[in-house]
Design a binder for these strands. Structure first.
Lengths: 210, 210
DNA sequence: GCGGGTAGACAGACCTGTCTTTCTTTCCAG
DNA sequence: CTGGAAAGAAAGACAGGTCTGTCTACCCGC
């Protein structure tokens, strides 16, 4: 069923027998690399088919329009980045919900140091296309999913008012990302400090008076 | 020297004798309205000249390229929005530096309720064009000026470590703007709460041990 | 007359999306 | 196992639109 494949989905030059991904996968792989770094509008269909080594007719067979591909990219971003990187790393690094919430900023810190740091695609595309565009709306949805995860962790940690908590926590995450996009390498640790205060404020008071 | 003019720089239909701004000003006025709401790429030169009621040759006489106009727009945004609205309103509403810092979030709260809320043009354009593009670099510069203002207020309030303070404060501002762009009307008050903790943390301890 | 404005044609590049033609792979009947 | 149909992919021309930027032609006020 599964197939061992090259990371970029293409055969290396001179290596004729390397397994080649199916076209749809190659298109998505190229789209992920290009869209996540340069946004949607700046990447044309011609560049996408060149990078994925696919014919134009094949491209349009799998994705009726460029926007359809962009939607598929956002879905993959949610799967690869949100779920597969940030959440997975936070869960790997900590055992309790509270520690996992804080670990998000440790993951961010590692992420911000990468020279190919590309900021948050959901925020990028939302601002690029506007909240009225279907792609912008999809970004709002995926950002909402992130807040849902934060809220679940907040509930699990027994925090108070986790709806507001998740929004404020997300504010810190996004603020840190923008600050990092401007070049501040300590953005994550600044956010983590403030996150600690937020956590404290939402901890239920033990001597809760009936 | 100065001239009383219509806000949009154009004569109303059927009012022939209304003062008409000079072409450069009309172009800039139209550019401000369009660029601040829709970004740079989404607005074409044809739309700009149509909205400003100017001939194409006139446009290119005053601005050799669209990017030159975009740079002039960012400069005006700094003047009109940063200096003329956020900073001016904060100073009008409060007398002390500390209160002025907090008042920024009151101004934001008012701003976020406007239905034509357009988020921060410097962040929008930075993410749209990338930090490598001259326009993106200009945005980084203007955002840096905002942090300089925050730092000056921090110094004036006698806070400790105002460099880090300004960065963290700016993180809260930008996080609030993105959260508001997603539709959270309470984004400003959430940020203000956290800003209060940040202020407390940077207040020099009165019993400083020698 | 001349500098600056208006109006709009035009060039050349690029964009998305369609279509044609040729080649390869797969799969099923016999 | 083989022949052949059918599906999918490669390569690229092409259409129709949009974009930035140039250029011509005319007009008006100083």
């Amino acid at each position: 069923m599964t197939l061992r494949i090259e990371a970029d989905g293409r055969a290396a030059t001179g290596a004729p027998a390397v397994v080649r991904l199916d076209p749809r996968e190659r298109i998505l792989t190229a789209a992920y690399a290009l869209f996540s770094r340069r946004g949607i509008r700046d990447v044309g269909v011609d560049e996408l088919i060149r990078e994925s080594g696919v014919a134009k007719a094949t491209f349009y067979r799998h994705f009726p329009s460029k926007d359809d591909l962009a939607l598929a990219f956002l879905e993959r971003r949610d799967h690869v980045w949100t779920t597969g990187y940030v959440v997975a790393e936070a869960m790997r690094r900590a055992d309790t919900a509270e520690q996992r919430l804080l670990a998000v900023f440790d993951v961010f810190d590692e992420w911000f140091q990468r020279e190919d740091f590309e900021a948050c695609s959901f925020v990028n595309v939302l601002l690029e296309m506007g909240a009225g565009h279907p792609l912008g709306q999809a970004c709002v949805d995926y950002l909402g999913r992130i807040r849902n995860q934060l809220r679940r962790w907040g509930d699990e940690a027994g925090l108070a008012d986790t709806e507001a908590f998740a929004n404020s926590w997300h504010l810190l995450m996004k603020g840190a990302i923008i600050l990092a996009a401007e070049g501040d390498r300590q953005a994550a640790s600044r956010a983590r400090t403030m996150a600690g205060w937020l956590l404290e404020a939402h901890r239920p008071r033990p001597e809760a008076a009936g």
